[in-house]
Design a binder for these strands. Structure first.
Length: 830
RNA sequence: GCCGGGAUGGUGGAAUGGUAAACGCAGCGGACUCAAAAUCCGCCGGUCGCAAGACCUUGCGAGUUCGAGUCUCGCUCCCGGUACCA
């Protein structure tokens, strides 16, 4: 019987398809398990990264089903987005047509890999039946103040012709096309994610068991909580005050000047009528131009500033502090003004050196003798207060509290918390996205669309612009509307939503993908969510995962769902590399899954992706590696094919102690059960699919050695049949087509994919003779074989009598003998 | 700079304080074959030794422990994230 993967894979894929083999249903008494992989963007073809991601998810989904869970394992399409528009412009095809054609192709490719998805819950986010609910959420968000409109400087990608959220600017470049991001003043729609900063941070503690630590850390850093104080510095001329935020209010006695951003609201007042006025204006204009050209967050630039001509007063020392406009002060963080403490902050130190400004040491390290003369850099560590009036001699952490108390009781400031997180700009000046359901009326202003008028459907009949500009502002059929309030003529919002809005709730929609009258069935949401296991690339550690966490909390507060966190456990899989670097079309180092499937079959491709490395780690695609995987698949096939017609019908772990009459039979039974324990533990507890597969390989290797002997007796056949069934059961989540076929060929009952995960018995794993390792002073000196029931005293005596052990203990005194039951004896001598 | 992760044979990787190198890949030897491929069986960290065995070996240096790849401390290098965030 020759192994023909194309034939058997097609056969079983049709069977699963006809039988709706993997549909989930809630209720039914079984415990629920929601296994989800990040849905793909329909770019046209799946790549090896998808294969790895979805193979990991499929092993888990199938394994959980075998363990008796009712598993929800859905798939869908993150279908709005720029590539569709760009392809449309290039190939003169409508983005919708391009997108749906790609979906059809990729669905075919996924089906060809035999993934056990519930295709009845498939969704595409570009469909009005999907995004209509998103528009409804937006109306609720608007009503609750979670969605709002504001004018501000925005990240602008000149190539994509649209704004970007902060999270989508990577090292100053657009996350999609790597263009330098510019700043542009625009009025945009925002979601108030900052209102949830506290909860987003605090709830990370609920995820410590199931999420990788580095993802938690990245989110924590991104949210960026800083605890400090706000301090008021009165202007010397008595006409107001500058407020600053500082995490180091303990160093306030060392504040010798003030730095403010070029966009500070008091700047006009500070320079008005001063001789520096013109020069400052020129400097600010220069900064503005540079900011537009230069990427946000590009590498550090030389510190520069200019004196405004005004002074403020240090509330503690009473000293006058010159006020500077400085290029490193961010308008958008804190209050846009910084008290400069050159002795204890490196930036202020550099600035003071450059402009020859005074310094004062106010925190002295333990046994330090810092002076302004001997300092070559700022000291930002802990220490003892000095030059700080009544606070001298205190440690600086204590002083922090006392100074905050003083500020509060003297009305000069207060304790404050500042966040790095900014509100989420969701407006996009592009066509292929979900319309924002808002209307502008000359009479009534900004008016939300009525819920009963949803969905606001994206028009299909539009002419795209070659430069990527959205056609919506030129499409009167779309933007002309009547005001829901006064009935007069009005204009629709023509920006669309960021595609990350769609991916922020799709996991919830899967629980009731065909609901027509509501976004979710609350019962279904409650029974399935949170997602038990989420699997995807670490590149979404901040973007998608932070947005989704926020979105769920916002939906909860609007009464749509009862849920705090969307994903209970997260697995971030590594990349598939080629010659040490990421596969990419431009480098020409890609491997096309379709051609690999054509050559080896889906089972081999799945096996290799799972065996090459543990899931979290990157691995290199190698031709010899997939050859090796194919060799194992063939080896399993041959082993079973040779046994067809010779074995009794059996299930995994069905042989009994009575059947194991010979040494070979006992050993086989032992190894069968040991492999099941190892493979089950590795898959369930650790996602170590590579070692689970290795355990099955060992068992297969053993069966090759003993099969002839076991075929001699009927008891032996029972033992062999049981072990063979176990091999197939264990491999079913990994190479499901082959195991279904072999299960059927061997005449075993039912289907491999509907077998329960085998249960090992401790009795089978008892050995009659055990090997005990003997160490002398921790060094391996021998091994002894003893019957399992030997007492500790007898084992210790045997260990001491072992010839090589004797040699190493001769003439020495035995101080101690340690015994690790069934494993090891360590003789301590001196 | 700060935060996180890592370093084990020729190679991908095992080892949940107790036999370091499981299972693969590559390589070598044997069987089968007219021959080759495929397959099956065996060997495969280093040094010394005829052998029994001894010594060395998990990036480097210390420590805890009867016993450390694993725990602790101090370094080196690599990867990822993030950065004028006050």
């Amino acid at each position: 019987m020759k192994y023909n993967p194309q034939e058997i894979e097609n056969k079983w894929q049709s069977v699963w398809n006809e039988e709706d083999a993997f549909n989930a249903s809630y209720g039914g008494g079984k415990p629920h398990f929601y296994c989800l992989e990040m849905f793909p963007y329909p770019s046209g073809n799946i790549h090896m990264g998808h294969v790895r991601n979805y193979s990991i998810g499929d092993v888990l989904a199938r394994f959980k089903r075998m363990q008796g869970y009712n598993v929800l394992h859905p798939m869908g399409w993150d279908a709005f987005g720029l590539p569709a528009e760009n392809a449309a412009i290039q190939n003169n095809i409508h983005p919708a047509k391009w997108t749906y054609a790609n979906i059809d192709n990729m669905r075919k490719q996924l089906k060809r890999l035999g993934y056990s998805y519930d295709w009845k819950t498939e969704i595409a986010t570009c469909h009005p039946d999907y995004y209509r609910w998103e528009q409804l959420f937006f109306l609720h968000f608007y009503e609750k103040g979670i969605a709002y409109r504001k004018k501000a400087a925005q990240n602008w990608c000149p190539k994509c012709n649209t704004v970007l959220a902060n999270e989508q600017v990577i090292e100053g470049e657009c996350w999609r096309c790597d263009s330098k991001v510019e700043q542009k003043e625009l009025t945009q729609w925002f979601l108030r994610i900052t209102d949830y900063a506290d909860e987003l941070l605090a709830d990370l503690d609920k995820l410590t068991d199931g999420w990788p630590e580095r993802v938690l850390t990245m989110q924590k850093n991104w949210i960026g909580k800083s605890i400090g104080a706000e301090i008021e510095f009165e202007l010397a001329e008595g006409n107001g005050a500058i407020r600053v935020f500082s995490t180091r209010q303990d160093t306030v006695f060392g504040a010798t000047f003030m730095s403010i951003s070029g966009e500070h609201p008091l700047l006009e007042q500070l320079i008005k009528g001063k001789e520096q006025e013109a020069a400052v204006r020129a400097f600010v204009e220069k900064l503005r131009l540079e900011a537009q050209k230069n990427a946000v967050g590009a590498e550090a630039i030389e510190k520069e500033g200019i004196f405004t001509g005004s002074y403020c007063k240090n509330p503690f020392t009473g000293d006058l502090m010159p006020i500077f406009v400085a290029n490193f002060v961010l308008a958008g963080y804190g209050t846009g003004a910084v008290m400069a403490v050159p002795a204890h902050d490196q930036r202020d130190f550099d600035f003071a050196k450059k402009y020859n400004l005074p310094m004062r040491v106010v925190v002295q390290p333990k046994d330090g003798d810092l002076t302004i003369e001997n300092m070559t850099e700022a000291y930002s560590g802990q220490g003892i207060m000095q030059n700080s009036g009544e606070y001298d001699g205190l440690d600086n952490e204590t002083a922090k509290g006392r100074i905050a108390d003083w500020l509060e009781s003297n009305n000069k400031g207060k304790r404050t918390v500042t966040w790095r997180l900014r509100d989420w700009n969701i407006s996009r000046q592009r066509y292929w996205g979900a319309p924002i359901p808002m209307i502008y009326c000359d009479k009534c202003g900004v008016v939300p669309e009525k819920a009963e008028n949803l969905p606001v459907v994206l028009p299909m009949d539009v002419q795209t612009h070659p430069d990527g500009r959205s056609p919506l502002p030129d499409t009167p059929e779309f933007y002309r509307c009547t005001c829901p309030k006064c009935g007069g003529e009005a204009r629709r919002e023509t920006d669309t939503m960021d595609t990350f809005v769609e991916s922020s709730w799709y996991f919830a929609r899967y629980t009731g993908a065909r609901e027509e009258d509501r976004a979710f069935n609350p019962e279904a949401v409650k029974s399935w969510l949170p997602v038990d296991q989420y699997i995807g690339g670490v590149e979404h550690a901040i973007l998608h995962l932070l947005y989704s966490r926020f979105f769920v909390k916002a939906l909860r507060d609007c009464g749509f769902i009862e849920l705090d966190e969307p994903f209970a456990r997260l697995l971030t899989q590594g990349m598939v590399l080629m010659d040490g670097s990421k596969m990419s079309k431009s480098k020409g180092n890609t491997v096309d899954p379709t051609s690999m499937i054509a050559k080896y079959g889906a089972d081999t491709v799945r096996l290799f992706c799972l065996f090459a490395a543990p899931p979290e780690r990157d691995f290199d695609w190698t031709d010899s590696g997939i050859e090796g995987a194919n060799r194992f698949v063939q080896r399993v096939w041959r082993l079973a094919a040779e046994l067809v017609g010779q074995l009794p019908a059996a299930a995994a772990c069905s042989s009994t102690a009575d059947d194991a009459k010979t040494e070979a039979a006992r050993e086989t039974r032992y190894r069968e059960h040991a492999a099941i324990k190892k493979a089950g533990d590795d898959i369930a507890d650790r996602f170590q699919f590579n070692t689970a597969i290795a355990a099955v390989m060992e068992l297969v290797n053993h069966l090759y050695l003993v099969k002839e002997e076991l075929l001699q007796t009927s008891e032996g056949k029972k033992v062999l049949a049981s072990a063979q069934a176990s091999v197939l059961a264990m491999l079913t989540p990994i190479v499901p087509h082959m195991t279904e076929e072999l299960w059927q060929l061997l005449g075993f009952d039912g289907r491999a994919s509907s077998q329960p995960w085998p249960v090992y018995s401790p009795e089978a794993m008892q050995r009659s003779v055990i090997t005990v390792v003997v160490q002398v002073n921790g060094k391996l000196r021998g091994k002894i074989e003893v019957p399992a029931e030997t007492t500790q005293a007898e084992i210790e005596a045997a260990a001491l009598a072992e010839p090589n052990v004797k040699k190493h203990t001769e003439g020495l005194t035995v101080r101690k003998v340690l015994y690790v039951p069934g494993k090891l004896v360590n003789v301590v001598v001196s």
